[in-house]
């Protein structure tokens, strides 16, 4: 049983506080952030960073990450999954797309060096403010992004996981990249067909994003089936805000999620992508993690058919 939590760069640098607490609560794996290649607010404005560690040599990258990874190993934490930098370019700013693809290619290499088996890479979605692109343009950009990663992936243990996203029109969430089950299966299968017998593409199910996009979770999971390799589990109130609350701290119905994962025989980590430490005062951090681990344990048992849903 693997139960994991998203670990931000801040958590990585303060592992003796955060990861120690995770270990004490029972967690045995993490979702390791590899996101901070750029400042997201600046990137959204089209500002490319002058330098980023991700484009340095393997030796320099490992010099930075090795002490962090050693610390995680000392706490018995597996790097079950990771998260690549995002957004993968701003659709109406071509310079950001070219740069993002270059950095994400390097992130595949870094994930391989660190032993991160599942790397989540966001695709782009169509936004209400984008006056340049059509949905076909966005789909073409996404195909270019993912297919360009194939050479980096060959011969590694890394699986790129596409994640269901939501777009935004005037503040209202709308269905975004890979939220249609059939299209998503076709897209993933076509990418794997490029990998000459290896399988390097799968899916990361984000139940909160699915809820915001108004997609029924059970048939979606059933259709995706074994393509689902990892999870971003969270909660929200179904409209407007991608809150990333702890499960049962919003109004989502988790029964269909658990039924779906049980029925496809999901056997990956029970991974929470929640704003755990921001949502609660520090005096409650340890108690909150104990509670979240209990939720993970219940989810695991429910998916394995050991607990009633």
């Amino acid at each position: 049983m693997k139960i994991s939590l998203y670990n931000s760069s801040k958590m990585q640098l303060e592992a003796d506080y955060y990861v120690k607490m995770l270990k004490e609560a029972g967690f045995n794996a993490v979702d390791f952030s590899l996101e901070d290649a750029w400042s997201r607010p600046k990137f959204w404005q089209g500002i490319i960073p002058e330098d980023t560690l991700f484009l340095h040599s393997d030796e320099e990258v490992m010099a930075y990450y090795k002490p962090i990874i050693d610390k995680y190993k000392s706490y018995g934490m597996e790097l079950y999954q990771g998260h690549a930098p995002f957004p993968s370019g701003i659709p109406d700013r071509p310079n950001t797309i070219e740069y993002a693809i270059k950095v994400i290619k390097r992130t595949v290499r870094i994930a391989s060096l660190l032993g991160v088996k599942h790397l989540v890479v966001h695709g782009d979605s169509l936004y209400g403010w984008d006056k340049v692109n059509t949905l076909e343009d966005i789909n073409r950009l996404n195909w270019e992004l993912y297919s360009s990663l194939v050479p980096e992936l060959m011969g590694t243990n890394v699986t790129i996981c596409l994640e269901n996203m939501f777009g935004d029109i005037d503040g209202i969430p709308v269905k975004g990249h890979v939220t249609n089950a059939k299209d998503t299966c076709d897209f993933i299968d076509a990418l794997n067909a490029l990998c000459m017998g290896e399988t390097h593409f799968g899916f990361c199910l984000d139940n909160g994003h699915l809820d915001l996009a108004g997609v029924d979770v059970y048939p979606f999971i059933k259709k995706l089936g074994k393509r689902i390799k990892c999870l971003h589990l969270q909660d929200n109130f179904g409209v407007y805000k991608d809150t990333h609350y702890l499960p049962y701290f919003g109004t989502m119905d988790h029964k269909d999620l658990l039924r779906g994962l049980r029925d496809i025989g999901y056997d990956g980590s029970i991974n929470f992508e929640v704003s755990a430490f921001d949502q609660f005062p520090k005096e409650l951090h340890a108690d909150m993690l104990n509670l979240l681990y209990k939720v993970g344990e219940y989810f695991y048992k429910a998916i394995k058919g050991l607990e009633e849903i």
Binding site: Y248, L284, L291, K294, V295, Y298, E307, E308, I309
Partner: peptide, 11 residues
């Protein structure tokens, strides 16, 4: 779910 009720009371 029943198995989570006591953990939530505790929290």
């Amino acid at each position: 779910p029943k198995p989570l009720q006591v953990p939530f009371i505790t929290f």
